[in-house]
Design a protein around this nucleic acid. Structure first.
Lengths: 269, 269
DNA sequence: ACGCATTGGTTCACATTATGAACCGTCATT
DNA sequence: AATGACGGTTCATAATGTGAACCAATGCGT
C-alpha cells in the first residue's frame, strides 16, 4: 500500500458519529504508528483535508472538501455515473435498464440502456414514472420521504388489471418492498413488462432515485430474477457511491436476506 | 515535500473551468514525472478522490468529495472558524470584531469577539444588522445578490445623522464599497462607533456574510484603519476558506489597491 | 499506406523518502 | 511525587517513491 493511500484512508475514520479524533486514538483505530500518523495528518492539513481543533488538539475533516465537492458537483453530471452502471446492468441481465431521479414528489427518468442481446425488449419511453405502478416508483415510496405516499394516492390510475388502485393495496406492496429491499412491478404499468428496482441514495443521505431493470414478463424466470437482483445491488451501490451517498445498512441487510438462495451458495462454493 | 502532499496537490489542478485532465497534460501542469503522476492518480482513485472517464481516459474529481463534504458540513459548525479568526482580529486591532451571515435578505450576527486591550470598546448587541447602516450590511449590498438592494431601500431607517436615508445616498456608498473592497460605516448606525467590514464567501461562490471591526470613532486614526484593513483581508480569506469558498480575484485586486500605501511598502522593504 | 507525434501505461535500477522504537515535555489524576 | 495518557519529535534503518527509457495504441497530415 502506497503511503499516499495510507495517509488518505485516515480520513475514512471521520464520520458524523465521530467528527473529531485525537492523535493517539486515531493511531489505535488505524493500527498505525504515531509518528507516521502524525506526519500524514500534517500533510493532509496543508491541503485542508484535515483541520485541528486548537483547544482540544483533536483532528477533524478540513474545509477543502467543501471546495472540491462544489467543483465536482458543478462539473460531473450524475448521468455519467448512471450510464456506465446501466451499461453493465443491461449487458449482464440481457434486459433494459434505467435510472430515475426523485425531484420533489415527481420521479423523472434520467437515462436508460437497452440490452443488445434480445430482439424483443422492454422500451422505456416515459419520462415521468407513476409512483404506484412502476418498480422505480415503489422504491421511492418505500424508501423516500413519507410525503410521497399522499402524492401517490392522490392519483391511483389503473394502467393494467395488476395496477394497485387502492391505498390499502399500495401499502401492502410498499411493505413488501421495504422487507426485501427490491421493488417488483409485475405488469402493473404495462402488460407483458415486469420491473425490478433498487433504491439509490445521494450525499444528503436521502433517497435520490432508483435503478431498475424492465424485462419481458414471459421471459422472466426465477433464475433471471436472481441475476437481476444481484446486479441491481451492485448498480445501486455504484451509482449511490458516485452520487456521494451510501446504501443504508438496513437495506443492505434486506438485500442479503432476499437473495440468499441455496443454488447461489452452491455456485460460489 | 512528502509524496502524500505531492499526490494531493494534483487535485488543485481541477476546477470548474478545467474539470477533466489527461495524464500527459496533468504532468505538464504539475511539472511532475509521468510514472509518478500516474501512480498518484491511481492512489487517489482508490479512495474516490479521482475518477477516470472511461471513454476519454481523462481524469476528474471523484465522488468521495461529496461524502466528506457532507460529513464536514454536518459536524463542523461555521462558528468555529469564525471565532478563531475573530480572536486574532480582536487581538491585533485592539477593537471589537464580529461576523455576520446572510440568510435570504437578512443579515444575522453569528459571533463577536471583544478585545481585552481597551477599557472602552464597541459592544455588538444586535442580532439583525440593518443593510444600509452597518459596514457588514454595506458589504452584503455591494457583493451579495442584487435583490438585497430592494430589501434595503424598503426600510431606510435613519439611526444617526450620518445614516444614508435615500436610495441615491445608499447607492454611492455601495459604489465606494465595491471600489475599495471594504465597507466603511462611520457612525451611521450608532454615534461614536465606526465599522469597517470585508465580505466572506462560501462554497457556493456567493457572498455568505461579512467580517467586521467596530472601533470607537474618536480612536480611529488612519494608521489603525490600515491595520484593521490588513487584518480584515486575512480574516476574510481565512473564514472564506474555512467555509469552502474563495475571495473573488476582483475583490482581492480592490483590496490590494486600497491598502497600497507608501509607509506599508517602506515597512516591508 | 506511411511515418510521425502524442496519448496512456509499464518497467527497473537507483536514491530519496517513509518508517517506528524510543524519546521529550505537558497535563490531569491519584 | 508518581503515574499514565496525551501530542509531538528524533534518528538509524529500510522500504518506498522516483524518472529515463520503453511499449502499444491512437490520431493526423502527407
Amino acid at each position: 500500500m502506497s503511503s499516499v493511500s495510507k495517509a488518505m484512508t485516515l480520513l475514512n475514520h471521520f464520520s458524523e458519529a465521530r467528527p473529531e479524533i485525537g492523535l493517539s486514538q486515531l493511531c489505535r483505530m488505524a493500527g498505525r504508528d504515531k509518528a507516521t500518523t502524525y506526519r500524514h495528518l500534517q500533510a493532509l492539513e496543508t491541503i485542508g483535508f484535515i483541520e485541528q481543533n486548537r483547544t482540544t488538539k483533536h483532528y477533524r475533516l478540513g474545509p477543502a472538501f467543501l471546495h472540491f465537492a462544489h467543483v465536482r458537483e458543478a462539473t460531473v453530471p450524475r448521468k455519467d455515473a448512471a450510464n456506465t452502471a446501466l451499461r453493465a446492468l443491461a449487458n449482464v441481465t440481457g434486459e433494459t435498464a434505467h435510472v430515475t431521479v426523485l425531484s420533489g414528489t415527481t420521479l423523472y427518468g434520467l437515462c436508460a440502456c437497452e440490452s443488445p442481446h434480445h430482439g424483443m425488449r422492454a422500451v422505456i419511453d416515459i419520462n415521468i414514472f407513476p409512483l404506484h405502478a412502476t418498480a422505480s416508483g415503489l422504491c421511492a415510496l418505500a424508501f423516500g420521504p413519507p410525503a410521497l405516499f399522499d402524492a401517490a394516492t392522490a392519483n391511483l390510475t389503473g394502467f393494467t388489471p395488476a395496477t394497485p388502485t387502492t391505498a390499502d393495496e399500495l401499502t401492502s406492496v410498499i411493505e413488501r418492498t421495504r422487507a426485501t429491499g427490491f421493488a417488483c412491478a409485475d405488469q402493473s404499468y404495462e402488460n407483458e413488462v415486469q420491473g425490478i428496482a433498487a433504491p439509490i441514495f445521494d450525499h444528503t443521505g436521502l433517497l435520490a432515485g432508483a435503478v431498475a431493470v424492465a424485462s419481458v414478463a414471459s421471459r422472466c424466470t426465477p433464475s433471471l430474477e436472481q441475476t437481476i437482483k444481484a446486479e441491481l445491488i451492485l448498480a445501486a451501490g455504484d451509482i449511490s457511491r458516485n452520487w456521494g451517498g451510501t446504501i443504508p445498512t438496513a437495506i443492505e441487510a434486506a438485500w442479503a436476506r432476499s437473495v440468499k438462495l441455496p443454488n447461489v451458495m452452491d455456485a460460489t462454493a
